[in-house]
Design a protein around this nucleic acid. Structure first.
Lengths: 329, 329
DNA sequence: CTGAAAGCGCTTACAG
DNA sequence: CTGAAAGCGCTTACAG
């Protein structure tokens, strides 16, 4: 590959000047010299080596992202939004897919440290992720879900508890008296908040019977669990799911069992990707403001003037569609 | 961060020896020295700087991936499989999401060149992608769809034409006499093959009437197009879609218009991700061997003894489910 | 405005 | 088996 030295020789100058021209600084260069360098660079097809630049400059202009499952639409949309926000500031987003595996989550974090990313955005599999490697390397982190304060990371997310409360409250307003909460694994991020919000809504109503179920986040797991559950007597009239993926699994189980949604069973989801509007039937769901979350996350990381973690709450939207029944009020 | 120099000092040796120990070579180190280095490294929490290593070593141990749309399940599953295959060989996969935008596709390729990835796997938006930047940097490429021979890249993919033929042939065997082909944009990768395969099957049958439609790959676009098309008279009895995403859009349009699948309209998809088994109704589709494609792609790039591009065809599977109707033979 | 030189943190011939 | 030194390709004080 062609180096700054090659360009300098052809332009009859030094590598320092080549650097000043390519980076528009930090020193001024006379217009004539500048033109010669630009011409030489263009003729040679010079592309600065990002590794060398990062090594001497001390910044890689890259941001690491850890997600539980890149094949999940929600994280796909999130990754895209983050990549755009990062790109707008000249940063490259490195995506690390945990594949629902804790070991891989950890190894991605290690790889990010080794490659000296400037900062990391994390959506962990766990309630309380291990960020020690990041802290040791003094790499700022923002988590996109609530984490314990003691963990020392910035946080930006919706209020899961409030969103769960609102969604279940909505089901109760439809006069559904028996409600199942299909949650993720109990240690998973947000699981507690989903259950607490739902339980609070049920308790408030007095009469509603609520039941707590757990499945993996994968559509197939949720489907299997619900095929079993719905075959048993006393099935719930409505199901609140902690992710859209699980809700699609429920929709599938209902279809398979000949149960009509929402006539026999009402369903609500959580995350609100574009796809939630295209299921059969379209899904009532809690929509997360993906764009806003992404923009703010990158902004927080960019303007990291202090080391003090910030905690931010962004608003969710309850999107009411067919799957929860005809609007009752 | 702690450097090799820090470790060397604590172990009472040189950075060269630290390197030999950490990398298990290329020189031998006496057991005693080795233990001292390992101990010092552990105590200090030493992590070699991957940038510096890459700069001096000349390899980054990273592979770039360009996909049209990471939020599309098919590419999500593909990215995961590639990441695993790459990781198994000690390589990191860098994912570049084009977001269905040619400019971004190009800028990701440029970013990969700048970061000196060892090789690139590309799924382009175009039939005939611009790989000149990669060629100039002598970075080997493998495309996961057919590209013109002249482009000088290795290729590994199913035989799209044959798969399209088989799927449409299957619809014809169901005695559907009017078939629509819902293709992607006309310049998109594979579009020609889809149409040619479908047209060949129709021509062979003699009596079947076939029509060619184009939509973007997004579910929403396909849905909108079909809402319009199916509202017109003389609607087709069956629809062959060039991606599962488009098929889901068709399913949605049918649901919205009160048309039952497969009773009123039969639908088939293409790609065959895990989700195709969970739609309403489950989707007949052409399944691509994602794992095999990923493994072979990484293998080809790893064992790049020659610069001669290789062209490989892997087998597809026609997965018959409810959406195309009760099995006719 | 410009050049020679040091330095980023590694790896690897080259001597010993 | 081990160390001093050069080199990977940049950036940036430091002189002039």
């Amino acid at each position: 590959m062609v180096t700054a030295r090659d360009v300098a020789e052809r332009a009859g100058t030094s590598t320092a000047v080549v650097s000043y021209v390519v980076n528009n600084g930090p020193r001024n260069v006379s217009p004539a010299t500048r033109d010669r360098v630009l011409l030489a660079a263009a003729e040679l097809g010079y592309r600065p080596n990002a590794l060398a630049r990062a090594l001497s400059h001390g910044r890689t202009s890259s941001i690491g992202l850890v997600v539980p499952d890149i094949a999940n639409r929600f994280f796909g949309e999130l990754a895209r939004a983050l990549e755009e926000a990062a790109g707008a500031r000249g940063n490259l987003l490195l995506i690390g897919d945990s594949g629902l595996d804790l070991v891989r989550e950890k190894s991605h974090i290690a790889a990010f440290v080794d490659r000296r990313v400037d900062s990391v955005v994390v959506v962990s599999l766990q309630d309380s992720p291990d960020l020690s490697a990041l802290h040791a390397a003094e790499i700022p982190v923002v988590a996109l879900h609530p984490v314990p304060e003691t963990i020392g990371a910035s946080t930006i997310s919706i209020d899961y508890e409030a969103a769960a409360y609102a969604a279940v409250r909505h089901l109760i307003d439809h006069d559904y008296e028996t409600i199942a909460v299909l949650n993720g694994p109990s240690e998973s991020a947000g699981a507690q908040q989903h259950w607490q919000g739902a339980a609070r809504a049920a308790a408030e109503s007095g009469s509603v019977v609520i039941e707590h179920l757990h499945s993996e986040f994968a559509r197939a797991d949720a489907a299997q669990l619900m095929l079993d559950r719905l075959a048993r007597p006393e099935r719930p009239r409505a199901i609140y799911c902690s992710t859209d993926e699980q809700a699609y699994g429920v929709l599938f189980a209902c279809h398979r069992l000949g149960l009509a949604v929402p006539r026999d069973i009402a369903v609500s989801g959580f995350d609100g990707t574009e796809h939630s509007g295209y299921s059969t039937p379209p899904l009532t769901t809690v929509a997360q403001p993906i764009q806003e979350i992404a923009d703010r996350a990158i902004e927080i990381l960019a303007s990291n003037t202090s080391d003090i973690p910030v905690q931010e709450i962004v608003p969710y939207t309850l999107v009411v569609r067919e799957s929860c029944g005809v609007h009752a009020h």
